[in-house]
Computed example of a mutant assay.
Amino acid sequence: MSIEQISPAQARQRQQAGAILIDVREAHERAAGHAEHSLGIAKDALEADPDANLPDRGAEIVLICQSGARSLRAAQRLLEAGYARVASVDGGTARWIAEGLLMVVSEQSEADRDFYDRYSRHLRLPEVGEAGQRKLQAARVAMVGAGGLGSPAAFYLAAAGVGTLMLADDDVVDRSNLQRQILHTEDRIGVAKVESARIALNALNPRVQVETFAERITSDNVERLIADADVVFDGADNFPVRYLLNDACVKLGKPLVYGAIHRFEGQVSVFDAGRHRGACPCYRCLFPQPPPPEAAPNCAEAGVLGVLPGVVGLIQATEVVKLILGLGESLAGRLLHFDALGMRMRETRLRPDPDCPVCATGRAFPGYIDYQAFCAAQ
Rank of each mutant, 00 (worst) to 15 (best):
L314S: 12
V321Y: 00
H184G: 00
R344E: 11
G328V: 14
N205I: 13
K135M: 09
L336D: 03
A111R: 14
G190K: 09
P240Y: 08
I64Q: 08
E60R: 13
C375R: 10
G40D: 04
A159E: 01
G362V: 12
A227E: 14
P255H: 06
P309N: 02
S151M: 06
V250M: 05
A373Q: 15
G145V: 10
V311Y: 11
E265S: 08
G362S: 04
I261D: 02
R344M: 05
P352V: 01
V358M: 06
I3W: 04
P240S: 07
D237H: 07
A295L: 13
G145T: 06
D170L: 05
I6E: 01
E4M: 09
R263P: 01
D56G: 03
V173G: 04
S71E: 05
G147R: 09
A153Q: 07
N205S: 10
E195A: 10
A31K: 14
G190W: 11
A11R: 06
A248S: 08
P309G: 01
I199N: 09
L136H: 02
D237K: 12
P291R: 13
A248N: 11
R14D: 06
Q181R: 04
W96I: 11
R334S: 04
G342C: 02
G328S: 03
S176L: 12
R121Y: 00
D187K: 10
F233N: 14
W96Q: 04
K322F: 00
V191S: 02
K322H: 01
A59M: 11
S2G: 06
L167Q: 08
M166N: 03
G58D: 15
D234Q: 13
D169C: 02
F115E: 06
G18Y: 13
E215H: 05
D112S: 13
P297A: 00
A317E: 02
S219R: 13
G326Y: 00
G274F: 08
A48R: 12
L286T: 09
Y258V: 13
R77C: 09
R134F: 00
G362N: 07
P55S: 02
A332S: 08
V307N: 00
A17F: 05
K322A: 00
L325F: 00
G58N: 15
D355I: 00
V62H: 04
A138G: 08
S109P: 08
H34A: 14
A200T: 14
Q66S: 09
A340C: 03
R134W: 01
G362F: 11
R140M: 01
N177F: 11
Y368W: 03
S106E: 15
L305D: 04
A229P: 02
E80S: 09
M345H: 01
E195K: 10
G145I: 13
M1A: 11
M345L: 13
R140I: 06
E99G: 04
D114C: 03
G326C: 01
A158E: 12
V311Q: 04
S219K: 14
G333M: 07
D49N: 15
A48H: 11
Q108T: 07
N53G: 02
R207D: 14
D170P: 04
Q378L: 03
R77V: 12
L21H: 05
F287K: 09
T212L: 07
P293H: 09
K193H: 01
Y156Q: 08
S176I: 13
A168I: 14
V231I: 15
G150K: 04
G100I: 14
D272S: 06
A364R: 11
G310R: 10
